[in-house]
Structure formats: C-alpha cells, structure tokens
Design a protein around this nucleic acid. Sequence first.
DNA 1: CTGAACGTAGCAAGCGCTTTCTAGGCGATA
DNA 2: TATCGCCTAGAAAGCGCTTGCTACGTTCAG
Lengths: 357, 357
Amino acid sequence: MTVTLADVAARARVSPATVSRVLNGNYPVAVSTRERVLRAVDELDYVLNGPASSLAAATSDLVGILVNDIADPFFGIMAGAAQTEIGGQEGTGRAGGEKLAVVCNTGGSPERELTYLTLLQRQRAAAVVLTGGALEDPGHTAAMTAKLARLADAGTRIVLCGRPPLPGSDAVAAALAFDNRGGGRRLTEHLITLGHRRIGYVAGPVERTTTRHRLEGHRTAMAAAGLCGDAAERERLTVHGPYDRRSGYDATLELLRRKPDLTAIVAANDTVALGACAALRDQGLRIPQDISVAGFDDLPFSVDAVPALTTVRLPLFAAGARAGRLAMGKEAPPPGGIATIAAELMARDSTAPPREG
Amino acid sequence: MTVTLADVAARARVSPATVSRVLNGNYPVAVSTRERVLRAVDELDYVLNGPASSLAAATSDLVGILVNDIADPFFGIMAGAAQTEIGGQEGTGRAGGEKLAVVCNTGGSPERELTYLTLLQRQRAAAVVLTGGALEDPGHTAAMTAKLARLADAGTRIVLCGRPPLPGSDAVAAALAFDNRGGGRRLTEHLITLGHRRIGYVAGPVERTTTRHRLEGHRTAMAAAGLCGDAAERERLTVHGPYDRRSGYDATLELLRRKPDLTAIVAANDTVALGACAALRDQGLRIPQDISVAGFDDLPFSVDAVPALTTVRLPLFAAGARAGRLAMGKEAPPPGGIATIAAELMARDSTAPPREG
DNA sequence: CTGAACGTAGCAAGCGCTTTCTAGGCGATA
DNA sequence: TATCGCCTAGAAAGCGCTTGCTACGTTCAG
C-alpha cells in the first residue's frame, strides 16, 4: 500500500541504508548511485515516514510557534515572518533544512500554553518560539520554566519573541523583548508635551507582562511630569480589559463616566484604541479636537484609521523573522541571549493639543 | 536520561503493554492497576514519545490547517475557530481526543502549499483543513488533487473551509464553501438600488477562486441591471491586485484615472476597501457623499471604520469551528460532502445614493 | 461440579527509519 | 608487485511504542 524506504531500495537495487543516506545527504554516496536512488524515489512517489524517521534519529523537523491570539495581526505578522525563515520554503522538497513550522494558538490560556508545549515535547520538536506577553502568575511561571527546561534538555531550542526573558532559566536560547516600557513612556510624553494633563488609560488584561510594562511606561511619564496623583487616582484613570475592540469601547465609556473631563485616552494597543474611538464618536466627541486617542503596535490598519492613529511602532515582522532565524540556528543569539527591540513613536492625527490647552 | 514507557512499567510493576493501554484508554484495565500506572506516570513525569507512538500506531495526532496569509484576520479567525474545536483543550492531558492543531502559512504560494501538504503527509497527519480560495491553475490543481488523494489514502481526513469543492475528487471528506457569488451579487445590487451606475471594482489576485466568484457575482448584478458594457469596458472598470491595503490604494487611484466619474467602488475584501478609502480621501473625495465604497468579509475592524463599511458578512468563526469539528469527525459531513455558507449583506455608512440621483 | 465465558495482563512481533560497524574494491605509494 | 588506506555500500541492531494473541484466574450457567 504505502511505499517504504525498502521499496525504494529494492527498486534502486541498493540497500535501505543507502537510500536513507541519499535522502539525508550527510554521508558520501557515489553520484551514479544517488541518481538511481532519486529516480526510484520519484518513480515510486515516495514520501518519508516522519514518525519513523524521528524515532530513529531522536529529533524531528517540527518547529512550534506559540501565539496568544491567532486572529490578531500582532501575532499573525510575527508568526508569518518566523515561518518564512523556518520552513515550507519552495525547492525540490528533500533538501536538508526542510522544517515544518507550525503555529499553535493558546488563546491566552495558560493551560493551553502548557498543553501545547507538552504536545510539542511529545513530537520532539526541534525548536519552539514563544511570542507575545507572558502571564505573570508565580504558579504558571514556575510550570513554564520547568517545562521549558525539560524541552531544552531534550534538545529543543527555545526562542522568545516579544516576551521578556525568563529570569534564572538557561533553557531559553534567545529572548527578543520589545521596549514596551520605553514606548509607553514616550507615547505619554508626547501627549504631555501637547499639553494634556488628564489622561485615561485603557490597559490590557491584568497579570500580563505586556500590560504591566506599557502601563509602567505610561506612569513613569506621568510621574515625571508631576501628574501622578495618589494610588486611588491612578486606579481611577486606568481600566483593564482584554486586547480587543470591545474592551476599548467599554473601558472608554467607563473612563468617561469616572472622569468626564479627560482630554486624552491611551489604549493598550491599536485594536483597543479603535474601540475607544468608536465609543468616543458614539458619545459625540470629535477626535482629536475634543479628545486625543493613542494606541500601540502600529498595526497595518492604524495608518488608515480616521483620523490616522498616533501609536508606537513595533517592528513585528523583523522581530518575527529574527526569532525564526534564531530558532533555526541560522543566526547567532545576541550577547547574553537577550535583545531589546526599540519601539518608535508614530505621532499622527488622532492626537492634538487639548481644547483649552 | 529520558523516561520511556518501560520505565513507567517497571515502576508500576506491570508490563509496557499495560501502560500503553492505560494511556490510550481503549482496552479494559483494572482500576487499581490503572491508578498505579498513572501514579508512576506522574512521579516519573513521563511524556509519551510521539514519533514512536505514531510509528507503531500508523497515525498521529497532528492536524494541519493551511492558510494563505496568517497575518490576515480573515484566516486568523477561521484558523483560531478550527483550532478551538480540534485540540490544545485544557484537561488532565492524557485524554483521548488530544490533538495538535497547527496552522501552516502558505503565503498564497502554490509551492508552499504543496510542500506543507508533503510535510503533513510525512507526519501522517490525522486531518488537514484547507482554508480560503484556491489557485486556479490546471497544473497546480492537478498536483493538489493527486496530493490530496494520497493523503486521503493514508487515512488523513481532508476538509475544505471557504474553498470550493474539488470536482471529481473523492479525497475530500467535506467542503464548506462561501457563497461568494451570491454575496458579490447582492452587494452590487445594493449599490445599483441606491442609484449607482458607474461602479469600479478592485478585484483580488487573478486566478483565485475567491476573486473570480466575487467578481462574477458583481458582474451578474451589473448585467441584470443592463449596466454591462462590452468586454473592454468591463476590463476598464476592473483592477486586480493582492488582498492587501496597498493594492486597494493603488488600484483605486488607477480606477479614478481611467474613469474619473465613478460613483462607487467595490473592493475584493475589507482590507482592500480600507486602502481604497485612504486613496479616495487623499484625493479629496468624501465617502459616501462623493463616492461609495464597499468591502467583503466583514472583518472586526470594518464596523469601526469611518464611515462604517458596507460589506458582506461571512460567518468566519462559525465556518472555521465547523471545519474543525468535521476534521475531528465530531460532526457528520453535509449531504454530498458539500455545504454552501450564506453571505449576508451588511449595509452601513460607506454607501449612499450617488450625488446627482 | 464442570465447562464456557469473561475480564485482565503479558509476550512478542513488528512499525519504518537511522547509524554504527564491517567489508569489499581500488588506486596510490613504496 | 605488495600493502595501506580511502571510498562506498551493506548488515543489522535498535529507537519506543502498539496490539494481536495467549494465558491465567474467576465467575456463572447448565
């Protein structure tokens, strides 16, 4: 029924060992023999049995890319870029570096994150790329650290992309972290420079590194400008929610209820910012004349929003591609295994000086 | 170094066969024995060797989801929904239905599509879900048909989602096709009802089923209204390009150059429509007062666009979830293996009657 | 009280490939 | 011309797991 190595060997009149060596190309095989084997492979339309191969060789060509939300372009762009570097490249098909880059959607759930890691461990994955913010829960962090350690032990290369390094773990081969703090700080500084004093903040989900770092950047800027009220005041100006449009909409309404005299709203990311804009418009407020709005990430649609969204650009594609290369061992890890990726302020039309500046 | 089944068996004082049966749960094992085994599994922190298991069982728990562009929410939403139904679900971890749902990004390249299919075939994937439009190239179609036939032969279940059925192939277990023709027709009818007569069309990439079907729907509506010029005229009113923002921008400029008196522009999808809006605005045209714009898909951001985008809603999440269930065999295939999924017109603010009646 | 039937566990034969070790053939060196 | 060493190919031993078959109690019907 299904063609095996032995069938190819028989047809090419060589031993299975020779066929294997031709296919893997890491052993000298005479040109004439190789050609005979390749011809047999083609004629029989032979496809290697991955499990058998992985079992015998104790490694596989699977590379997993974990994302928090596959429907979010933030992750899609990084994952796509990484995948480009890793595998599925065109070519004759039996080349060496051929890897199966697959993306796994955790949906932000810690259990699924762990489950996927186990599944990848089962498959003896060659590498794993973890993208996006991590959950800041001691229990989960410990579980992740342990899991990653076992994976690394088994030879799986671990790369972090857009996620802060795991302190005290040497399992991670390389970590590419975004400068969320710096970006958040510069964004709010921009608002403050424009003259804003009462700035609301729609934060991401609690206990996520990304959420915390961006918020810290924001508060650093506020504090530096002496706009830092007491803790209660800070809480009043902040609403947490998931990274989606709906959250931006609802949180903005809530913020307006708490502080009707807000002159600017900073959102955790662009998607949330769009929701905020919708809420503001529904309240009859004009952007940026009545109120300024800013996002984060600079996703492709942000420049086309009306008005064009002021945001912080993250080089998602470049970071994803680099993570992919790191995972393939095609690029040397940065010094110390850690690199911080700069975030650039993109001042556009959704922010302007407050009305009575 | 790494823990094997035999280690667990030794610790639980049973045979490897028994451990295997406990883990797979498809054979009667006494409760006391099962508990002893499970305890040993936990104590040893045993993780099944996927390749070995797949080799022996001749199947794997891998399910591949192929998408054309992972950075596009159109695919992200479907893939995420499918993945939800397929695997990575929380739970104790050793349950039966545990599958590894992975998404593979072809980038719209036929070679990569085939490559991924081969890679999935290598892994003896349990199922494959192909999403989005297919390339309409005889050579590629033949190659795909052949490849899918081999996959199906090997026991891989094939499901199509948002892609028309493969004529004359019985390899496909189920095909979920969107009513792109009907949606395209109703959208253009809506515009014609509003009074538009000169309508430009920004089509997707040539030789794609999705592109062709949507365009056919559009032209059917035009013809029915007697707005169907000669072939040359039809070509003048149509510009092809990729499914991205940039294409919408450039194509719109081109359309305006060819026909400055256009009163409406229909885009191949929402992303393209946003690019069209940007181009129009840059030309000083107001939407919808000066010109109407319509998209397709009803992606989440479309309702938040300014003005809110008139478009055609495709139930992406529901379709993806159904495809996932079909792939898992959790749902019976539709009669004949083929189901057409309705597309609903969402008339919003980006379309209005043309200026002079 | 005996034999069939059932429930439970072990034995052992692979699954298809990789890789170490071995062996044969040959040209090169002395 | 004889010896050494290199190049190439084959034999065979697993890799860790699944599963058909067998074996050993027990229980239950006859």
